[in-house]
Amino acid sequence: MAFFTALGALVPLDHFGHYFHWHFIYLSLSNLIIILLMIATFLAAILAPFPGRKSRKEHQ
């Protein structure tokens, strides 16, 4: 419980959210973070080695 109270103090939720505005693109900070996380996950999914892939290729 104390952890979540501390987390709540770090991320104040009682005011209007932060928004980014570039031309026609209008994004909230939270949505921007999610999009960046999805891009990072996508790149990691392509680049990160899959466990056991090498041994499977050798097996074949």
Binding site: A45, A48, F50, R56
Partner: peptide, 11 residues
């Protein structure tokens, strides 16, 4: 198939 052994196929 062998090519399925990639994280991109997990999603």
């Amino acid at each position: 198939p062998t090519y399925v052994a990639s994280w991109i196929y997990v999603f």
